[in-house]
Amino acid sequence: MEINRTEHNGIVEINISGRLDAATSSDAESVITNVIEENNTKVLINLENLTYISSAGLRVLLVAAKEMKAKNGKIILCSLIDNVKSVFEISGFSIIFEICDTKEEALQKF
């Protein structure tokens, strides 16, 4: 798993690539928590290169969504591959999160 952050026009983009699972989720959690604690209220999580996610990964995103809601901020996810998308659908997380097909579409929603 690799995670990195960039920022443009007040929107923080977090890119997570590889596997977000029981072994890697705590690393991802600390990066995302940092971004939220810095009082960023517009966060785009780009999952274009995420090849695998399990419930441990979903848990990290849910925690982030809760923290963000408490700060009246917004998290948008984008560019999920089909297998990852079906995990979101089965778990009901596609209702909890705002998910866009492309990064361009997501950026317009902030």
Partner: peptide, 24 residues
């Protein structure tokens, strides 16, 4: 099964893994 229809702050993540497994 987890209740993901609840308001965001009330959703608990316990049981999510098994819920995924049972559905595939």
């Amino acid at each position: 099964a987890p209740e993901t229809e609840l308001p965001l702050e009330n959703i608990k993540v316990g049981g999510l893994g098994l819920h995924l497994v049972k559905n595939i």
